[in-house]
Design a binder for these strands. Sequence first.
DNA 1: CGGCGATTTGATAATGGTCAAGTGCCGTGG
DNA 2: CCACGGCACTTGACCATTATCAAATCGCCG
Lengths: 244, 244
Amino acid sequence: MPSSTHPLVSKFDGLMDLTASEREALSGFPLRTVSLEAHQDVTREGDRPSRCAMLIEGFACTSKITTKGRRQIMAFHIAGNMPDLHSVHLGVLDSDIRTISACTMGFMDHSPLKALCSQHPRIAAVLWRTTLVDASVYREWMTNIGQREAFGRLAHLFCEVMTRMEDSGQADGDRCRFPVSQVELGEATGMSAVHVNRTLQELRKENLVSFAAGVLTIHNRDRLAEAGEFDLTYLHLQEAQLAA
Amino acid sequence: MPSSTHPLVSKFDGLMDLTASEREALSGFPLRTVSLEAHQDVTREGDRPSRCAMLIEGFACTSKITTKGRRQIMAFHIAGNMPDLHSVHLGVLDSDIRTISACTMGFMDHSPLKALCSQHPRIAAVLWRTTLVDASVYREWMTNIGQREAFGRLAHLFCEVMTRMEDSGQADGDRCRFPVSQVELGEATGMSAVHVNRTLQELRKENLVSFAAGVLTIHNRDRLAEAGEFDLTYLHLQEAQLAA
DNA sequence: CGGCGATTTGATAATGGTCAAGTGCCGTGG
DNA sequence: CCACGGCACTTGACCATTATCAAATCGCCG
């Protein structure tokens, strides 16, 4: 058997029909695979990295710390994501990327990546598109944080995580791994850990979700989606294949 | 005199050194110029547009409406911005774009735009970068909404607007045009209009900013930046020239 | 002058923050 | 094997920020 496909190839296979030359360019792309422990920095605000990462296994997040020491998590990353792809074209990083669980990451240098994009415009377009979906998710999170109250915020977040995990084949029925702490849930939704805890109990009491031991279980998908006003359009999943 | 430069050319001239062939491709790009009144929809959530817009004159915003009828503004657009550039690679729009003031917009069809990107990878890279900066601003806004309280939120927003207006040569000393209503400020910062009003009064009383009749005036930049914990790194301005 | 939208003000209530203490779980080390 | 320490989670009490509702004022345009 082939010594496991190149992570870039697996990623693109789901997103477009590759030509032979594109496939060759991707499968030969130099990737340094690294194992990281939980709660480790991958990159930090202010860094000027010369490479970007692909999350191959585990959970990570993007966050930022305020002068006053408050932390906002802007995104959770699951296997298959490229958390700092934007660093290819932005000189300075404006946020931190940290692992949440133990992770395997593949690092790719910017310069071959730029060359790849110049030579293969369709690949460039798909990578660009990836960052556009990230931006779409940011827009939805802003709406979540700005306009919904605690109950709906968590409901929405859980719907999103489950949907993404399912889409990438990492869910198991109504359950999926989601090893974040309540503090981190609070940092992602703009609420205090105490209030997260209480809201989690409400969600549980209503028999919508349970969240414990790093596992998310959704008991009533429809009602959860309703509570979180969740509409998956913003994830731009189904149309992925149509791209480029 | 030349019948005014092509808006795309002016935009790129600030961002990179154009080769002759790039300049030619840009200056010949078909653009339909349209005048719009204040508070008009440009595109709506759910649309599948075949063109995207460049704001040539005026103010616009991106927003989304919740099932419960609450509106979140995710971005303000000023002259020179391309509010829905992301529609080139995302099939369905996930948010609305509306004018705030009367606007002039230039519409560009997707297919020539895609062709332009395929043939001119450096142009593609700069356009990609533009959307990455948008995403960076989203990240900052999430932090603003999620982690700062009213006073800081407005302070931060005002710092951003002034900085961007200055950067694009649209400010006049400490003042710039910013014709949004207090309701809209609230929709952008996740606070009620009433609370916006009161916070504005505080900002005024502290002699940091005044905001009236569609004009923003900053009286004490340092203290305002401090109140809003404003650090312009996330706007990725200075390094724009280094791109591509 | 009339009316409409935007802003302002006041009063009241609710959502959610903070502080502090307690519980439970797990891994380390004696 | 059990005690200890640490960390995540839980609970209670209290309080602050901010929302909501309602009414008044202001400015502007027809």
